[in-house]
Write a protein that binds this DNA or RNA. Sequence first.
DNA 1: TTGGCGATTGGCT
DNA 2: GCCAATCGCCAAT
Length: 208
Amino acid sequence: MRPAKVRCLTRAQLPSDTITLARYLLGKIVVRDWGTEQASGRIVETEAYNIGDPAGHAYRGMTPRNRSLFLDRGYAYVYLAYGTSLMLNVSSEKAGIGGGVLIRALEPLTGIEIMERRRGTTKRRDLTRGPGRLAAALDIDRRLDGDDLCAEGPLWLGSDGERVKTIRASRRIGISRAAHRLLRFYVADNPFVSGAARLNRPPTRRAP
DNA sequence: TTGGCGATTGGCT
DNA sequence: GCCAATCGCCAAT
């Protein structure tokens, strides 16, 4: 059976609220197109950085770096973290309002060999598990900042109709402000989700 | 002009 | 689990 056709998401399909979008994007597909070849992966983990979030890059207003977060929803915001790792975000609010969804992990779908080459490993599970890793695998850098993800250009968002079964939430990874908020979303029991195992278990009730 | 600080990763103990 | 690498950003000087 051939894989289902991947259709580009339209801007109208995207929820115009950061947290709703972060959940909506789980199960959707990131496609990287170099013209002669292509690679893609299914989104299995996201984090929401919504309006008024002190952990979000948009919190202090627009700057040269973060201006893409203030575009209409569905545009790429790409930045370098720690001087070593590039991060892919999807702008998530109306034009003029800053918000974004960080894509934290993908399940590799196509173009596996390209991603293996770019990552210097053939360990399938490590190819796109983690935001810096998936950006490296897909050759995503600041040149793609501001790219329209709702158009079939070098980088776009698609769907093959697949729906994720169970979405779980946790604290976000690697931040200190608003750290308790449950704004990280991931597909339950998916091996390509990043983060420590204890973050990826179902919520447990506190002992009495 | 400068210095502190990350939405991480990979290597080593 | 701990920690160094590495560098662009930006608030404050």
